[in-house]
Design a protein around this nucleic acid. Structure first.
Lengths: 233, 233
DNA sequence: ACCGATCGGTGATGGGGATCACACAGAGCT
DNA sequence: AGCTCTGTGTGATCCCCATCACCGATCGGT
């Protein structure tokens, strides 16, 4: 089923984004310095603990950002959409990459070497600001992640949170209460810190409670409010 | 006992640090713009969710940085030592503060308004760089925090991690295997995401296994290796 | 010296979810 | 058609830790 999904999203992947929303001069400079490559599914852009080589900017496709424990367990921090830079914090601070980035589908990704990025940052204040703001946003996002994982130790609450988050991302879509399931149960478990089996059971429970419906690999959430009532219940 | 500890550390608190390691001209500018205030124990510098007003730079004393769930539970992100800026990410990104900052002892803290910081950042590239690097470090630290909290769900492992971390901070001290306990069991629980009772029981167990000794409010760790063997056991 | 508050130790209990162990379905391949 | 691999559904079991409950210790204030 997973490969099925990948094929779908591959076809549906949005067109390559232009380089963020920078003024043309900066875009030109970036286009010149950056190397854009196409990666297959499952390619590892960088791994947790490696020395920073540069930043990766997702142009097309989705990338999984995760950290893993020494016992092999994995926690998915987030799934990154096109337009987002990866590895910025590591490059700026000079410390090692904090997470592992792996493509979830065929991706088009621009690479910018550490030295080039730093040079361009000095040249273009806007770029420096953009970088700093992105790190701040990553930081804020990570804090929220922590909150959601810790403050609720019922697994159903965490799953409800995840689903509501997906709904929020889809707010602008044609069908705001439909969500495409692009993750396996195992990966969902890695996002909310539970086992695969628990995710299966939770989904079964949610379906029985009419909180969700599943049509193929599309999730339908009839009334969002009911789902939200599970949070901090 | 907690107040006892506070009194101790109050006496032992290091002298106010000069403003980081900036060139004199920048230090002067910062000294001019910043307002330095003394806060009592338990003062809240800013709270999670508030709109950013500016950054706080700890000059003396220790500050607790925490996030809290809607159910009232608290997770302590870290204890901040002098020299560290707080709320930088929020100020730079313009989003709300991601955590709550509360003094753990009487503190001396400099406040710099958002507008002033941004202006100085534009003027002094070093300051901008310093800010960006601090955010990156905070981000990296938060990622480690997540890792430690998620990847090990045995509570003893988490506590062992915390203690080893304390040892690392003390590496330069006269007695590298002594650690001052400046936190209550409750707060330790909030750092590793367990209940107070569990922390008590864990400490008792560790003592029984000769992993730690407690003399007054000083913790002695005879052999660090034994403690580390609990991690990813 | 009294009291109230905070902190720490410890027992009993119960539940949520990890883990193990299967069975089944669908996709891709030869 | 087979066969393999990955993803999913579900039962049974077990253990860790949250929670409740209570007590003793220490400190500070009046």
């Amino acid at each position: 089923m997973a490969t099925h999904i990948v094929n779908n999203t591959q076809k549906l992947a949005p067109a390559a984004k232009t380089f963020c929303d920078f003024p043309p001069s900066l875009v030109d400079a970036l286009e010149q310095e950056a190397i854009t490559t196409t990666y297959p599914t499952g390619a590892v852009l960088f791994a947790e603990g490696q020395a920073p080589r540069g930043v990766f900017i997702v142009r097309r496709g989705r990338v999984k950002l995760s950290i893993c424990g020494s016992d092999g367990r994995t926690l998915i921090l987030r799934i990154v959409d096109p337009g987002c830079p990866l590895g910025v914090a590591a490059v700026v601070s000079g410390r090692q990459y904090e997470a592992t980035a792996e493509t979830q589908e065929p991706c088009e990704i621009s690479f910018l070497r550490q030295s080039d990025l730093l040079r361009l940052m000095r040249l273009h204040g806007e770029l420096a600001l953009w970088v700093t703001q992105h790190i701040s946003m990553d930081y804020a996002g990570t804090c929220r992640e922590i909150r959601d994982l810790i403050l609720s130790d019922s697994a159903s609450e965490k799953l409800a949170r995840l689903l509501v988050g997906w709904l929020d991302q889809n707010a602008a879509a044609t069908n705001p209460n439909h969500v495409k399931m692009a993750l396996t149960h195992e990966e969902i478990g890695q996002m909310i810190g539970t086992s695969r089996e628990t995710v299966s059971r939770l989904f079964a429970g949610f379906k029985k409670q009419r909180l969700i419906q599943q049509i193929g690999c599309t999730l339908v959430i009839p009334n969002r409010v009911a789902l939200e009532s599970l949070i901090t219940a």
